[in-house]
Simulated scan of single mutants.
Amino acid sequence: MRKIIVTEFITLDGVVEAPGGDETPHPHGGWQARYRSPEGGKYKMDELKSVDALLLGKNTYSGFSNYWPTQTGNDFADSMNHYPKYVVSATLPNAGWNNSHIIRDMATELAALKNTQGGNILVYGSATLVKSLLQHNLIDELHLMLIPVVVGGGLKLFDDNLQLRNFSLSRSQAFENGVVVLEYQLLP
C-alpha cells in the first residue's frame, strides 16, 4: 500500500508557509526563506526522490504549475515535472501541467489511489488539503521542517477541532541554522 506523506515548513507557533511567503498577507511573510541551507536543500531533494507522485491542493497546484514547467535541467525540477501529480479540487476545470490528474472525490479516490501499485505520494504545502486529509485519516507520515521563529499569527496547519491523532517520531535531524526536521508516522 502506498503512503501519503505530508511535508511542511512550520514555525514554533504552528504557522505554515510556502517558500515564497506570499500566499497570505502576513506582515512576517517570507520567514522560511531566511533559513534556506545546503542541508535543507539536500533533505528536500532526498525527500522528493523517495516518492514517485505528488498530491496537491488547488492553490498549491496553481502556483506550482505556473513555475515548475519553466524549470528544467536539474534533478528537483525534472522530478517535479515528470512525476504524476494529483490535484484535489471540486472547481479546477482542467489540469494542464504534464502528467496531472484531478481528484474530485477526495476520500474515495485517495483511498483507491493508496491501494494502487507504485511508490509513496508526497503532499507539498496545501494546508487546506492537509487539514481535510487529517480529518479523513488519510495521512501516513508528517515531515515537518520546524523553523526557529514565532511569527504571532498566520495560516495554522492544525485546527482546534481535530480528533486526537497519535504519531510516532521516526526520524529527527537538526541543521546548523537551527532548523529541525521531524518525521512522524501515524500510529494505528
Rank of each mutant, 00 (worst) to 15 (best):
R34P: 00
P38C: 11
A107T: 05
N81K: 09
M106Q: 11
Q71F: 03
L138S: 00
P93N: 10
G30R: 06
E183N: 11
P188S: 15
P25Y: 00
L134V: 01
M145V: 11
G125P: 07
A111S: 15
K114A: 02
R165L: 14
L138I: 03
I4E: 03
I121H: 12
G41F: 10
S126R: 12
K42A: 15
Y67R: 01
I5Q: 01
E17N: 01
L12G: 04
L113T: 04
T116W: 01
M145S: 10
S132D: 14
P38S: 14
S89W: 07
L187S: 08
T116N: 09
S170I: 15
M80G: 09
F76G: 04
T7G: 05
L12C: 06
L164G: 02
A111W: 00
R36F: 15
Y35W: 12
R171M: 08
K58L: 00
W31H: 02
S62G: 11
L110N: 04
I4Y: 06
L164S: 13
E47Y: 02
P188Y: 08
V87A: 05
K42R: 15
I102Y: 06
P84I: 07
L142T: 06
A95F: 08
H26A: 14
L164A: 10
K58C: 02
W31K: 01
P69R: 02
A53I: 01
M45V: 11
L144D: 01
N137C: 04
K85F: 07
P188T: 13
P19D: 07
D159E: 12
G73M: 06
A111E: 13
L155D: 07
K3H: 13
G21C: 09
M106H: 05
P84S: 11
V6R: 08
N74F: 02
M45G: 07
A174N: 14
E23W: 08
F167C: 06
N177H: 05
A174H: 11
D13L: 05
N66V: 00
V88I: 00
W31M: 05
Q173C: 13
K49L: 15
T24D: 09
V51E: 01
Y83I: 07
N161A: 10
M45L: 15
S65V: 04
P84T: 09
Y184R: 00
I10Q: 05
Q117F: 02
